[in-house]
Amino acid sequence: MTDSPLSQAQFDAITEAAAHWCMRLHAPDCTASERQAFEQWLDVHPLHLVEYEAMLEIWDVAGDLPRPESNIVPMVRPTRTPWRTVGMAAAVCALALPLAAYSGWNLGWLPDSYQHFEATDNVRQVTLKDGSQVELNLGSELTYSNYKDRRQVTLGKGEAFFSVSHDTSHPFVVKAAEGRIRVTGTKFNVWMYEDQVKVNLIEGSVLVSSNDDLPGDGLRLGPSMQASYGHGDYMPRISQTYDNDNSLAWRSGKLVLDDLALNDALPLINRYLENPLVVADNSTGAIRIGGIYNIKELNTLVTSLPKVLPVYLTRNKDGNPVLNSIPQQAPKS
């Protein structure tokens, strides 16, 4: 960010982020990496610290917010507040105290409940505060916040299948990468890898937007439809799914690759790998792969690929495995 005036949307985003960090730093499962990310967030703009300190004021007097369950002390650095923001800090904090009388809830920008879930080595089923059921794939993480005007999930990474409790007056919003999925009650799957997102609708309807900053609620999906988007997409790409679609095979512990080019298959595989596979060039990426694999054993797939495909493995400077196509020998004359 720069010192130029912030838009209302940017200011609201900072306020929401400050509320998120306030809750995470009070949570007993807050990790060292999250604390490091919080430090980095503070350094981006001086208003981040101002808003965070104001949020702490609200936290201290808002009795209906989740309370700390341990002696975790939020990382606040008041001595680093720039002098030019002291006046702004005083103004924000002055507003924070009367707003806290409403516990932030009546204003619709502070939740009354918050949950954080992770799935590491096993698929995990969880129940959200609103009664919605979520199944998390391996290596997945999400948070749930209940606001006055919406139920909000942020998919931090991975994949999740949602069975959402119906509530037309209280929409359910999933934020994934730069976009969002908005529903009132339905069943759908969200897959995310880096900035790529794919939404598969099973039942009901959803609205999908590829960028949360764009106006409107997005494109509507009906049953047996899917949407996908990535960084910079103005609109999601919509397509039809068919009876043989295998996007939900992970719920049975499987990854199904149905004669895909490596360029298309690697994001599905890399979601499960600590060191992602890369292809050396476009000709390697065009090689096709198929098969059914156990999602808990995909690390073994890396070393077995040279046995089933015309490729060999090297390592790049980052230590990631690289697939190289084996040059075909010209036929002897």
Rank of each mutant, 00 (worst) to 15 (best):
A96M: 00
S333T: 09
M192S: 14
I238P: 01
S169H: 10
V44I: 13
Y102E: 00
M235Q: 14
A27Q: 12
R151P: 09
L155N: 07
N275V: 02
N211D: 15
L262D: 10
A227M: 09
T79Y: 04
A17H: 11
K175T: 08
V256F: 04
D212P: 01
L277F: 04
N137I: 11
A227D: 09
T2G: 11
L25R: 13
P28I: 06
Y229Q: 09
V153R: 07
S7E: 08
N275H: 12
N324Q: 10
A54P: 02
R35S: 05
R220N: 04
A176Q: 10
T2I: 03
W109Q: 00
A100I: 00
D167K: 12
E159G: 05
Y229N: 07
R182K: 13
N189D: 15
G179I: 07
L207F: 12
V311L: 11
V76L: 12
S304K: 08
V73I: 13
A265S: 07
A261Q: 12
V322K: 10
N244F: 06
K198H: 04
N282P: 01
L262T: 12
T314Q: 06
E274D: 14
H26G: 15
P306L: 03
T143A: 05
V44G: 06
D112H: 14
M1V: 01
S113D: 13
G319M: 03
P66D: 08
N299I: 07
V256C: 05
I295A: 08
K317F: 05
L110K: 00
L255N: 04
Y229E: 03
I269S: 06
V134S: 09
